[in-house]
Design a protein around this nucleic acid. Structure first.
Lengths: 189, 189
DNA sequence: AATGATTAGTCACTTTCTTGAGTATCATGG
DNA sequence: CCATGATACTCAAGAAAGTGACTAATCATT
């Protein structure tokens, strides 16, 4: 149950509403976890019931009211406990890999199309992570920022996200190249 | 519900028992999906009920009997359908990223320890994937194998697994270096 | 001859995730 | 002035995944 810790981590440096949290976790900028709005609202409710966050109502007149959540001391303690516990290894779990695994037995065209789609997606995320990183480090260069900046956590996770998507991009390119070359070879002979 | 397709993909080129399947999905060699034995046995039961695989009893006298499963025509058709459907983008979901995201607010030592653990794990998997790749391509070099070999699907997914773990390794190294440098700087004053 | 590891598999339960449908208010653009 | 979309959130149901505890045979070791 790391979703709860992901939520705590996200709330560490600023008060957020469920809605804001949902946007951060849903749109591509979810550099360290991914979840849908419904899960987040539910998790916030549980976290509040367990005393790990507190919500305060903010009355707005130009918008619907909202509740902003902050991590309590108990919440910080829980995160500390979580950080010290051994993390389970992260396994890849990806539809696209399943398709590629089966590529020798199913239509290669279908798989090529999927790889192209993923490629485009990866490139978009690379862009996104790139500009997010620039925002996070401001006018400093990376080396300097990582040495002396505060809030390097989000920067590091964003770096991982970037490398992951670059890995996706390169692999998709390779896969498309290989499969098309084989298709061409089959067509020739 | 890609587990069922992952199972189908795994059974494509050889008959396997639930137990053999479980080992493939459990140990690190699960280069394209990960699942526990119980899930696999359950999924095999469902797949057989749906007519996508057939099992045949094999009586052994030096071992408990087992059931070997094969993909049926309906199973192949189902995989074909799956390959053509749009894959959902794969999101990162990793305890360790959550810990790093929170690193500015929790004990850095705990996080460094976790990164070191993951680093060792990643290095072990890199070894494993490396030798698996060598086995898959035999005495050919990679370029040649990918051009003319049969069964390139498992090779390609294994390449992705390798790159993923290399990404983990590099990122862990970077993270440890950054966090330790900062700890040293804080200690100096 | 007992102990533990390996092969082979099952059952029951819980948590987590996903899907789909709603509610309500206000701002913006055509 | 009406449609669209953003803000802000809720409820319910179902699928998928994870956890723990089991049975039962054989093989290797001590």
């Amino acid at each position: 149950m790391a979703l709860r810790h992901a939520v705590l981590a996200a709330l560490l440096h600023e008060e957020l509403s469920g809605y804001q949290l949902a946007k951060a976790f849903d749109t591509g900028v979810a550099n360290f976890w991914h979840a849908l709005p419904q899960q987040l609202y539910a998790e916030l409710t549980r976290l509040e019931a367990d005393g790990l966050v507190t919500g305060r109502e903010v009355v707005q007149d130009s918008r619907p009211n909202k509740r902003l959540f902050t991590v309590t001391d108990a919440g910080h303690a829980e995160l500390e406990r979580f950080a010290a516990a051994t993390a389970k290894p992260s396994f890849i779990r990806d539809d696209l890999l399943v398709k590629v695994q089966a590529v020798d037995h199913v239509s290669a065209d279908a798989v090529i199309a999927q790889l192209r789609e993923r490629l485009a997606f990866a490139e978009a995320k690379i862009e996104l992570f790139g500009s997010l990183l620039r925002t996070l480090r401001g006018d400093r260069d990376e080396e300097e920022f990582l040495r002396h900046g505060d809030r390097i956590g989000p920067y590091l996770t964003c770096l991982r996200g970037l490398a992951f998507e670059e890995g996706n991009r390169d692999w998709c390119l390779r896969g498309v190249a290989v499969l098309e070359e084989r298709r061409a070879a089959r067509a020739r002979g």
